[in-house]
Design a protein around this nucleic acid. Structure first.
Lengths: 217, 217
DNA sequence: GTAGAAATTATCGTATACAAAAATAAGATG
DNA sequence: CATCTTATTTTTGTATACGATAATTTCTAC
């Protein structure tokens, strides 16, 4: 299933969709992909199946697979849900976090701070993921954690772009501190509210960016 | 992909997991399944891939697929998330519902009422799905709607059991009326709160039922 | 008799082969 | 010349075949 070759094809196609090399509606021809990745059709078909499962492709019986790049509307909808899920994670974490987990959360946030001091946006990106991962674990609901991770992953490639927007990193860090504070205080409502806002701001900034790009950036 | 044979195998295995014929940890042997469903290994493997994707099976490389029936803890976690998603749908619907959609929602709830009057729990089950479907559509976020439907589907087979608990149907209907009222009034917070509660009650009742069954029902 | 190593077996992952359905192209008819 | 019908070709869906890796068994050494 997640065999070596099939995974390679899956990730390869996923990457090409994210980078825009494969555009919306493009046909995912099995034979071409097989040739391109130097494997047979079997692992290609497995990869396509997973792509359909992840919502990155559509399948029409007896007609083949087609890229289903998310529209702007889709992205806005996903950010709306992401903000709810992140809020829920933070809310539950505020009630359920352990002392060790809190320490790890703080450490992760220090990591973010260091990345900003080093002006390293790639590092910040990874430390930011660590920070949120701490909250997912602390929420005490692994199903929720997985769903949130999965959605984060789908928004990821766009997010990475987003963080390079001028002045966003320090603002994001400020929000992190507020979230930590609320969680430490056990203030579930506050943790929820700030976290939602944290995601929605990114969503809105992302939206701005897209519009800007479309106008000819 | 969702080819005839593969889909048949997928749904067959899914059914057997839901009914408990295939228990947690049971090995999903490709050859046996192929024989059982009278197809070759190819569609069986596609079905297994989808099962893993849906979280109903685990895959260990070079060792095969195994049934991953949700534990009680998993179920509680899923209900927790379901309650959040349902709450979100209702909250957004309160803000975004159209007049026609509101009329449909009310009509669906009347359908539920009729089913109770006829004392037909199967009919109630379907009318209840219709009712919630109205809210999913009215929330104006199709991504959210799909995620919620998908989770509902996973909890479905258990829910069906749950609704037969004595006295639950009328109580459930009462909650429906409260939800409709809140949505009609545009009271997003109230719609959210009642909807969450609506799901959590089902989750708790379900939990009770499971414990009862384990003790020797 | 037990423990470790080698051979055997079984199963997974991939490749290829074949059949059925759909898209495309060619030809006939008005 | 357009359109419908039919033949060809392409592509999907399924079956089978093969190679590689892990589990199992058997054999040997102590």
């Amino acid at each position: 299933m997640s065999s070596r070759a099939a995974t390679r094809v899956f990730q390869g196609v996923e990457e090409q969709i994210a980078t825009g090399q494969l555009k919306d509606g493009a046909k995912l021809d099995e034979a071409s992909l097989a040739e391109r990745f130097e494997v047979s059709r079997t692992p290609v078909r497995e990869a396509l199946l997973q792509l359909v499962g992840s919502g990155l492709a559509t399948q029409i019986p007896k007609r083949g697979c087609f890229v289903k790049a998310p529209s702007l509307r889709d992205m806005v909808e996903m950010f709306e849900v992401m903000s709810e899920l992140e809020g829920m994670c933070a809310r539950l974490a505020a009630r359920r976090i352990s002392d060790e987990q809190l320490a790890e959360l703080k450490a992760a946030n220090v990591g973010c701070e260091d990345a900003i001091k080093a002006n390293d946006s790639d590092l910040y990106y990874h430390k930011n993921v660590d920070f949120h991962e701490c909250i997912y674990i602390a929420c005490g609901n692994s199903f929720l954690a997985n769903e949130t991770r999965s959605l984060r992953r789908r928004l990821q490639s766009f997010r990475r772009l987003q963080l390079r927007v001028r002045g966003r990193m320090p603002q994001s860090l400020g929000e992190h501190f507020e979230i930590v504070e609320a969680i430490e205080a056990g203030d579930a409502d506050q943790a929820d509210r700030i976290s939602r806002q944290h995601v929605m701001i990114q969503g809105e900034r992302f939206h701005d960016l897209l519009v800007h790009m479309e106008r000819g950036g």
